[in-house]
Simulated assay, not measured.
Amino acid sequence: MVHPLLFLQFFRELLAPLHISAGSADAIAYTWLIMILLLIVSKLATSNIKSVPSGLQNFMEVVVGGIENMLIETMGEHGKPFFPLIATLAIFILVSNLIGLVPGFFPPTANINTTAACAVIVFVMTHVVGIKHHGAAYVKHFMGPIIWLAPMMFFIEVIGHLSRVVSLTLRLFGNMNGHELVLMIFFGLAPFIVPMPMMLMGVLVSFIQAFVFMLLAMIYIQGSLEHAH
């Protein structure tokens, strides 16, 4: 594997003409690295599919099957068309979180641009699905149950939907960036002993944050599919 410092230097030089900051360049570099790794793993897992899975195929079937079961439990059978989006977000965010636990690597989710991009995808998809499913009647989701309160409710609902982007962005970014800063401080103070419990806790945080993001994405899309009352 290419050393992360050489990988970073290559991307910084590549992105230099665009005047992108070092932190954003790191996030972009590791985002591409994670995408390449996931493509390789997907290729290896599906290159020789067996009726009785084993090894990497068995592991990926467990992961994909677990996400699919959670999707069906949360959204029902009509949520299956959104499985590729939800699974992609969940796996990408989880791997992005976990890669930060490898010494010398930087988690892309510790950069607010990455988390904002994921949040915007969920926001846009939510309303695209709502408009596609309900047509012009989708606006009723923003009007509230009482007609004479509709103008005020519309304003409140718009703010509420926009705040979802901020919430998804800052929750994931804050947790991962905070954990990264704590690890850096502990590695500076005691490189071998003290950081170990924090790294173990980081594994738990990585899974929880990926789960929360995935769950909220499913809830938001499910809400756009429901009929306004």
Rank of each mutant, 00 (worst) to 15 (best):
G174Q: 01
G65K: 11
M184T: 13
K132Q: 11
V128Q: 01
I40Q: 02
F7Y: 15
S163T: 06
P151S: 09
T114E: 07
P4K: 04
V62W: 13
P195D: 07
R164W: 11
A137W: 00
I91V: 15
L149E: 12
K50E: 13
K43S: 08
N177M: 03
L98N: 06
H19I: 10
T169Q: 02
A116W: 12
L33M: 11
P53I: 04
I159N: 03
V203P: 10
S54R: 14
P53N: 04
N48L: 06
A16S: 15
A217D: 05
L225F: 09
V166G: 06
V194L: 15
G55D: 09
M153N: 12
K132F: 09
V166Y: 06
G223R: 12
G160P: 02
L170T: 07
P108N: 07
L225V: 03
F92H: 07
S24W: 11
T74D: 05
I93S: 12
G178T: 04
I40S: 06
L181K: 13
F187V: 04
H227F: 07
M199N: 03
I147R: 09
A90Q: 13
P191R: 11
L8A: 02
P197M: 07
F173Y: 15
G188H: 11
N97L: 06
V182W: 03
G144K: 06
V41S: 01
L39M: 10
A150H: 03
W32Q: 03
M125D: 02
T169S: 13
N69F: 06
P17T: 10
I72A: 07
L14M: 14
